[in-house]
Design a binder for these strands. Sequence first.
DNA 1: ACATTAATATACT
DNA 2: AGTATATTAATGT
Length: 227
Amino acid sequence: MDKLRPLSQINLLDELPEEELKKIDEVTLTAPIKKGTIILSPAQQMRSLFFLKKGQVRLFKVSSTGKEFTVDLLSEGNVFGETSSFSLTESDIYAETMVDSFVCTLTKERFEEFLRQNPDISLKFITILTTKLKEMYQITESIAYKEVKYRILLLFMQLSNRFGVRSGEWQTVGVKITQHDIASMIGSSRETVSLFLGELEKAQVITRKPLKINTVLAKELYEVEEG
DNA sequence: ACATTAATATACT
DNA sequence: AGTATATTAATGT
């Protein structure tokens, strides 16, 4: 298990007032990026930060045998990338758009300046980072002690809290995710994930459309949260 | 209680 | 049609 896990979960969108968003728009380049585009790779180290304005991005590493290892998923309002002073991801990481997206590029200076001028957002930033840290603790603990079924539910709870919306008894996961993604994020195998997703669906704990997890039963998520 | 391998099926582009 | 993704079964630790 890597000691260095990414601290990439940053959703500043909820905190950003309209004017600030416009300010960002003025000082940065917002580029539309096609689905499946690699915007960050070990070979092409951009010394800048990226602000995901719209869409979804997958962070992954590639093993020596060429297998992809999904590390995290990002959605609207997330910041990732690195500069010389701090990095929000590991340095040898790939970032790929999973859907057509809009991405802002921010220099380190601009970002630091932005934080300096917006103390509230800096605080929000810290909150998000500590939340992510707590999530990583939970995942590592579950990998050490919990069964795969439980790990899947924990991951869904985290994704759901970050990206999903509650509607009645059900809560959406809120991101596109493959079984391979799930497996690498909880330290399991695709086949085992497939098996347990089937069980969870049969037990009516999750619902899903073909190739897509839809919703998770909220009360199950709270039970996971209790431990 | 899983992983791994392989064979098969289904969905996406 | 070709590729990616998911399911199922068999076997091993």
